[in-house]
Structures are given as structure tokens and as C-alpha cells.
Design a binder for these strands. Structure first.
Lengths: 110, 110
DNA sequence: ATGGACCTATAGATAACCGATAGGAGAGCG
DNA sequence: CGCTCTCCTATCGGTTATCTATAGGTCCAT
């Protein structure tokens, strides 16, 4: 029985996208596939969540997109992290670590 | 410099309340104070988030409330976990663990 | 040239949380 | 008794983020 796809934890999508892009520039569906691969298939970002997030973050100046060709020679928009995006990723990771600690403390309370 | 209050990670509130109530029945503000205490003050649930959640979960049959007197002899509604609530808490913890693993994998990818 | 896979994109609905605010009820004090 | 303070519950409106569903364009293979 294979694990069924996990839903997103709301509020973490930006961080996960930024982190994924920090390793290499990717186009939209490439990001989604990379995440799915890294998590062994348990995790999927749907297009309807992904693209609005990309547009929003491009508007914020955290990522920059440029049109190119995908591996399969299709028209695709490649995104890469900007300097501001790198800074933002750092902030989000700190916030996440802090929230995670609080949640863990509550879950492990006796 | 004490850590400023962490915001809630959306989607985890039910689980945190259920977990807190699984240790002992508490009234609304008691839940909030208990969480704040356990996390060393970094975490606070605001009334505007807490009470709607309590009512919703009571409607779902996960918790049961009964009127009583607080430590200070004030009118207070004490909530305790039902059997269904215990089951629900188990599910939420499993989902959380699964989501957490996926997020960690992405954050630690190289 | 036709069907299918790939990639981007938007719209509508829903759910959850926050900030602000209100108000009742007991306690302590003069 | 009457006043005020604190405790506790409660609701409203707004914002934000994600999901489902859908659409459209483009390249490739047959």
C-alpha cells in the first residue's frame, strides 16, 4: 500500500518552492516533479496552487522567470532565485523552525 | 530578548487543542494558557481562533463541554476529549508526521 | 493533420485564522 | 450595597492560502 499523496501544510508552500529553486532553476512543473521525487512520491503540489504562488513571488521580487525550452523542447518558463529570494528563504526557514519547535513541545507534553 | 509570539501554522490548531485536552479537561482560556506555558511563552492562541475551533470540534463530536466553575470560581465551560476525539487526534498526528517528513526532506535536499 | 502529452494559466469555492470587540458574572473593597 | 476589576465566553468581518476544475496553446509522433 503506497502512501497516498500528502496535502500541503498551509503556509509552507513559498518556503518549499524557494528552497527547491535555490538548488537549481526550474520551470513550473519541474518544481512540482522535483518535490515529488525528493519526497518519494508522497508529496504533490497541484498546478492550481503552484502557478499563483509563482506569480505572487515573482511580483514580490523573490524569483525571476524567463522563457526558454524545456528538456523536451517545449516552451517553458524557468524561475530562479533572486538575492531577495535568498534572504526571504532564510527568514521563512527561521520562522518554520520556531513554529515547529512550539508544535513539538505541545505534542510531546505530558 | 525574548522570542516574539509565534504565529500558528494553519491546519494544526485542532490537533494542538485535542492533544492539550487529552492530558486533562480544561476550559477555553485554560487551554490557551496551558499551551503558552508548555512552549515557554512563544505560542499563544487568540480567543478569536480558539472559540470557533472549540465549537466546531464540539459539533463534530470530538470534544464535549460542560459548564462548571473555574479555579477562581467563575463560570467556565470545561471541555474533555470524547472517544471519537481520541481517534481523531491519532489521525491528525499521523498526518502531521507524514507532512513533516515530506517538508523536512525537501528542506534538506541537496 | 490529428491525437496526445506537456506546460502554463485562471476562476470559483472553501476553509482557517486573526484582530477587534462585546458582554456577562464573580470578587474584593469602600 | 454599589463600584470596578478581572475572568471567561462569544461573535463578526476580513484576509489569505490552497484546492478542484477547467481551459488553451504548443510540440511531437504516427
Amino acid at each position: 500500500m503506497k502512501p497516498r499523496p500528502t496535502d500541503l501544510v498551509p503556509g509552507t508552500l513559498d518556503m518549499l518552492i524557494l528552497k527547491t529553486l535555490s538548488l537549481q532553476p526550474l520551470h513550473g512543473l519541474g518544481i512540482s516533479r522535483r518535490m515529488e521525487q525528493v519526497t518519494g512520491g508522497t508529496f504533490a503540489v497541484k498546478p492550481g496552487s503552484l502557478f499563483p504562488a509563482l506569480h505572487r513571488m515573482e511580483g514580490e521580487g523573490w524569483i525571476a522567470g524567463s522563457w526558454g525550452k524545456s528538456e523536451n523542447n517545449r516552451r517553458a518558463k524557468f524561475y530562479e532565485l533572486t538575492k531577495a529570494g535568498r534572504r526571504r528563504l532564510g527568514e521563512e526557514k527561521r520562522n518554520w523552525a520556531q513554529a515547529l519547535e512550539a508544535i513539538t513541545q505541545i505534542l510531546e507534553a505530558t
